[in-house]
């Protein structure tokens, strides 16, 4: 029972810092997901309506991000980012060394990985938009951008929602890797707590529970959003 007090909010309890760590996991995940969504949209645009060059670039980017371990990308942003920032800084005459924050490195690294995956989801959804609705937009004189904003994006987003939900789940799990930069999110915090108290299993189990809670709750939210977005589409459903 005293074990469980370790997880509580009392003077010896780690409860408060674990909650804070959970919030940090959420913060870095949300930031990375937004970066990924922006990048993914751009890449999907490149693959669907770009020229040969844009298409090849988008394709290559996806292949690289699919084939390289996430942890290497995080290292690259964390250590490499520091290396680059320091090189640039000293070249400009500032006294180094410079640092890049774990949050920034993690957000960018996971955002870039997620961007490649989200692009695939968005591209599929984009291509599933009925051609007739696009033609209907053209014949009333919409510009390419208006067409995208008013006709393509709203329809594609509905189709893409389940896929994006999966990508969000991946981002949450990948965010645990940011712990290697020392950013105090869930994974890092439970490691510290486990090391300090020597109650390894207890704290890793608590960490697992935090991730399960986040993934399950957000899964429910995505389902709700899916149902909400499908309201006008009953005839297209089952």
């Amino acid at each position: 029972m005293e074990d469980l007090a370790l997880l509580g909010f009392g003077p010896d309890g780690w409860g408060k810092v674990l909650v804070q760590a959970g919030l940090m996991t959420l913060a870095v995940s949300v930031a990375a997901f937004v970066v990924g969504l922006a990048l993914g949209t751009l890449i999907a645009w490149g693959r669907v309506s770009g020229g040969g060059m844009a298409r090849a670039l988008a394709h290559g980017y996806t292949a690289v991000m699919r084939g390289v371990p996430e942890i290497l990308v995080i290292y690259l942003f964390y250590f490499g980012g520091r290396q680059v920032v320091t090189a640039v800084g000293t070249a400009l005459g500032f006294p180094g060394p410079f640092d890049i924050s774990g949050f920034m490195a993690g957000m960018l690294a996971i955002g870039l990985i997620s961007g490649a995956n989200q692009a695939e989801v968005l591209r599929g959804a984009w291509q599933a938009v009925p051609k007739g609705t696009i033609e209907a937009g053209r014949v009333v004189g919409m510009s390419r951008f208006t067409l995208f904003r008013r006709v393509i994006a709203p329809q594609a987003l509905v189709t893409a929602l389940p896929g994006l939900g999966n990508q969000w789940q991946s981002v949450i799990k990948e965010s645990a890797l940011v712990s290697v930069t020392g950013l105090v999110e869930t994974m890092r915090q439970v490691s510290v707590a486990a090391g300090t108290t020597q109650e390894h299993f207890l704290f890793y189990a608590a960490g697992a529970a935090i991730y399960l809670a986040i993934t399950t709750l957000s899964d429910q939210l995505f389902r709700l959003a899916e149902r909400h977005s499908l309201r006008g589409h009953q005839q297209g459903g089952m």
């Binding site: 789940q169 799990k173 645990a176 890797l177 994974m187 439970v190 490691s191 390894h200 189990a205 993934t215």
Partner: peptide, 11 residues
């Protein structure tokens, strides 16, 4: 599937 592999390894 709901938890990170890293935490599974450490556990």
């Amino acid at each position: 599937r709901g938890t990170p592999l890293l935490i599974q390894i450490f556990m």
